[in-house]
Structures are given as C-alpha cells and as structure tokens.
C-alpha cells in the first residue's frame, strides 16, 4: 500500500514538473534534465503495465529503465557543469581535470578489485552494479559541488534546485542500496521504502526550485578579467608563502 502511494505520488509530481516546464519554457533551458524526468514517467507507466499484465518480465523492464536513468543521470551532471560554468572557463578547466582524475582512479580501483577477485563480475547482481555506478556519480557530484563552493560560483534557483535534488537523491540511493544489500530480509522492507522515498524527496526539491524560471545572478565583472594567469598565481603563491612565514615567525618568536 505504502509503495503504491509513493509510486502514484512520484508520477503526480513528475507530471506536474513537466507541465510547469512546458508552461515556463524551462525544458528548453535544461533539456537533459527534462528528458530524464520524461524517461522516468515513461518507465513508471510501462513498469506499471508490465507489472499488471506480465509480472515475470517486470525485473527486466525495471533494470533496463534503471540503467538508462543512470546514464541520463550522468548527462544531468554534465548539464549542470556546462550550464553552471559557461561563464567561468577557469573553473571549468579545473572541473574537467578533476573529473578525469576521478574516472582514472575509479577505473584503477575497479581493475584492481577485478584482478583481486575475478568472480565479482560474474557474481555481482544488478543491485551491486547500480550501487557502484551511483557511488561514482556521488563522488563526481561531490567534487563538482566542492569546486562550485571553492570558486564561489553563483547559481540561479533553477540550476541549484536540479543539483540539490539530484545530489540528495544520489546520496540517499548510495546509502539505502548499501544497507539494502548488506542487511537481513527483515530490514530490507524498510530500506526498500527509503529507496523509493529518496526519489520522492528529490521530486519535492525540484518542484519547489523549478516552479518558474529564475535567471542566474550575474557575477560581478572586474577589470582584471584579462590578467595573465601565471602572474596572478605567482602573486597568490607569494602571499600564501608570506602568510606561512608570518604564522611561523609569530608562533616561534
């Protein structure tokens, strides 16, 4: 009963979100995000029909849709990066390099684990694979958010909402999937509901932030835009070294 309620609540909010997007022309500004929402609505309806008429095929339909959503979820992260950093090429360079480093580290860790335990790839079920992909997404989102905070990138309400909702959703998915896999059957029911409710929470955040279009605040334009990076970096390095020797002198005086 509870899972049915969550299901219908999700579909209602998704349709509301799509309707607001068409009305406020938000779908043209964030096309990947709204493709994701449309795909989830479509998947929900197909899954419902399959569950009613052909229950044996339900797991195949569900997991196909789920992995498609993971793929489009990666595209959402890219859309946030692209839209959020379009006016900030310096931060975009940092973000690209950090994401490349993270992918290399993840691939190295995966290969090392596979070499250590070759059976994992054969024995791993869809849930474990889903969790591994979601964990990678969570790391990428965390790195992007840390960069946005460090470089004080100003966000519009809409883009912030997309990132907040999707980030909370992915964070909760990683935690609930881990507990769902690791715990006994008795507590699996609870984690199953939490798993479903995480998406409902994300939809709530999206509905609040994407109700209508809000332009991103323009960052202040300075007269230093054309400064050479090496000169700026050298000045900052000198000032930070001065700070370090200042602290050392004061404490060791």
């Amino acid at each position: 009963m509870l899972s049915q309620s969550i299901w219908w609540a999700c579909i209602t909010l998704e349709i509301l979100l799509l309707a607001r997007a068409v009305r406020g022309k938000l779908s043209f500004r964030y096309p990947v995000f709204y493709c994701y929402i449309f795909l989830v609505v479509f998947q929900d309806l197909i899954s419902f029909l399959v569950y009613q008429w052909k229950p044996k095929s339900y797991p195949y339909v569900y997991w196909t849709g789920e992995f498609l959503c993971v793929l489009i979820g990666c595209a959402i992260v890219f859309e946030v990066y692209h839209v959020g950093l379009v006016s900030y090429p310096g931060t975009a360079t940092m973000a690209r390099n950090i994401l490349v480093v993270l992918f290399i580290l993840a691939a190295a860790k995966g290969l090392k684990a596979a070499a250590h335990d070759p059976q994992w790839w054969l024995e791993a079920n869809a849930l474990e694979l889903d969790r591994a992909l979601r964990a990678m997404q969570a790391i990428c989102i965390a790195a992007l958010v840390a960069l946005f905070l460090f470089y004080s990138i100003p966000f519009g309400k809409n883009l912030r909402g997309i990132l907040l909702g999707y980030g909370f959703f992915i964070g909760l998915r990683v935690i609930t999937l881990t507990f769902f896999i690791a715990t006994s059957n008795a507590s699996r029911e609870f984690w199953g509901y939490t798993y479903s409710a995480s998406y409902l929470l994300a939809l709530g955040v999206w509905c609040v932030h994407l109700w209508c279009y809000k332009a991103s605040p323009a960052a202040r334009q300075t007269i230093h835009l054309e400064q050479d990076y090496q000169r700026v970096a050298a000045a900052t390095q000198r000032r930070l070294h001065d700070a370090r020797s200042y602290v050392a002198r004061a404490v060791g005086s």
Binding site: S87, Y88, P89, G90, T91, T93, M94, N97, F150, Y151, S152, I153, T222, H224, L225, Q227, D228, Y229, Q230, V232, A233, T236
Partner: peptide, 13 residues
C-alpha cells in the same frame, strides 16, 4: 585569487 582565476582562459591545473 579564485575571483580572478575562475574566469581565466589559461588556467594551469
């Protein structure tokens, strides 16, 4: 530093 370099086209990683 970050206020200037976030817009820098020649930022070195």
């Amino acid at each position: 530093h970050t206020e200037i370099t976030r817009r820098s086209h020649d930022l070195r990683f």
